[in-house]
Design a protein around this nucleic acid. Structure first.
Length: 424
DNA sequence: TCTGGGGTCCTAGGACCC
DNA sequence: TCTGGGGTCCTAGGACCC
């Protein structure tokens, strides 16, 4: 049996947590560069502020209703997320963190001690007491149904934020009311195609012939339909799967024209990506760099290129990744464009057991036990953990020309001594 | 002025093997 | 008249998720 625990309006709730004055006020959280709306409080949703809308489209509403906007503050959200997940780990034998604001819990057998509904209430109370954030809980025999139960818990306040979908009859009653595009795994495209076939509710998808679903769509949707029928198709994993790629990219706060500016950005993204790589104990065997202009600016000349390279010996050394990334960037660069975004992607990831020696290089031992590199990188990571970006590669200077716009940033209340909230 | 960032999985089709 | 059968690996692109 699965429980899905999902934080309500997560980013907006995080912002409200340290601003009791905003308790009943509409709040939105913006994407990087303060571009569009990525999270809305209950009050903002009630004002019909849409997810993903560019913030300049809703300037009038923001003024009229006094909507409070925040730049995204990932230091804060990431820390509060960790606190929520840590709390959940004390409540269930197995927790599968699915995203920054939700996790699946293995609750098999808990109903021998108390009802699922009672347990859900306990989860809500514990997270509220330990962290201060509101969550909803859905129970069901499959992940897809647990998602649906959670949807119902959020949508119908009378449920008290907890919904159990353990019986078939109850599952079917709810599915009959839920539009098919609310089902986990059914996006815009598939929903459109299903609707054209006359399938508009979750229940109709559950009842559709599975061979037809597989034939007209794919095995993925077939699994979804089976899960709606209570047949688990996405089991527990023994261990979280290792990452297959690591991407670090950012839109620029303002356009960058010069190669030097792009080099700075790419060096920075390469460094960040390699930090993440080391964090997971992995090595990269492939490196990709891309740059592009702003595709939304139709009048301006457009340019978009990417370039990649295989690394003969997989690496986790920032210096090597930066050097290779800059080598990819320079031949791609053309002058005369307003560059709006760049990124670095690491692929062909492997742990140390997957390392393969370069046949034409010195001894294998030298290639893999480069003690100097390992020690230097771990020293860099230690120092940078204590004080963000104290040590950089020379190509990253700062403050950068491409820096993000973050005009409505709240303090890092929980992760920086200098920004602790004050109570007066 | 102005539109995010970071991922996963599946499929189709081509190249190649014996 | 007419041209096998069975497979792997790789890539690009599409769909989805939060």
């Amino acid at each position: 049996m699965f429980a899905l625990v999902d934080c309500n309006n997560f980013y907006a709730s995080c912002e409200k947590l340290f601003r009791p004055d905003l308790r009943d006020r509409p709040v939105v959280v913006l994407s990087n560069n303060d571009g569009c709306v990525v999270a809305r409080s209950r009050e903002a949703k009630a004002l019909d502020i849409k997810m993903g809308v560019p913030v300049h489209h809703i300037k009038a509403e923001m003024r009229r209703y006094g909507i409070q906007a925040f730049s995204s503050n990932y230091a804060l959200y990431g820390d509060l997320s960790r606190r929520v997940m840590t709390t959940l780990e004390t409540l269930a034998p197995q927790v599968d963190v699915y995203s920054i604001d939700e996790a699946f819990l293995d609750v098999t057998g808990i109903n021998r001690v108390m009802s699922f509904e009672a347990f859900g209430g306990q989860v809500r109370d514990t997270v509220a007491r330990n962290v201060g954030l509101p969550v909803c809980v859905g129970f069901a025999p499959t992940r897809t149904l647990a998602k649906l139960a959670n949807y119902a818990a959020k949508k119908y306040p009378a449920t008290g934020g907890v919904v159990g979908l353990t019986e078939t009859a109850r599952q079917r009653r709810l599915m009959a009311k839920v539009p098919v595009d609310e089902v986990w795994g059914v996006g815009r495209k598939i929903a459109g195609k299903l609707q054209a076939m006359g399938i508009t509710t979750a229940l109709q998808l559950a009842d559709a012939d599975s061979a037809t679903v597989r034939e007209r769509f794919s095995v993925v949707l077939e699994r979804t339909a089976r899960e709606l029928n209570g047949i688990p198709c996405i089991p527990w994993e023994d261990a979280p799967a290792p990452k297959k790629q690591i991407l670090c990219s950012r839109s620029f706060g303002k356009p960058v024209q010069a190669l030097a500016g792009l080099e700075e950005a790419v060096a920075h993204f390469a460094t960040r990506a390699t930090e993440k790589l080391r964090g997971g104990g992995q090595y990269a065997g492939e490196l990709m760099v891309f740059v592009r202009t702003n595709p939304f600016k139709a009048t301006a000349p457009q340019y978009s290129r990417s370039s990649s390279v295989r690394l003969v010996t997989p690496t986790q050394d920032s210096r090597e990744v930066v050097r290779q990334a800059l080598n990819l960037l320079r031949p791609m660069y053309r002058s005369g464009y307003d560059y709006a975004k760049a990124g670095v992607m690491l692929g062909e990831l492997t742990d140390e057991t997957g390392l393969q020696a370069d046949l034409f290089e010195a001894s294998t031992k030298d290639q893999f036990s480069d003690d100097r590199s390992t020690r230097l990188m771990s020293l860099m990571d230690d120092i940078n953990r204590k004080s963000r970006a104290s040590i950089r590669t020379a190509r990253q200077s700062g403050p950068a020309a491409y820096a993000m716009r973050r005009e409505h940033l709240s303090p890092a209340y929980t992760t920086d001594w200098k920004q602790l909230p004050r109570v007066t």
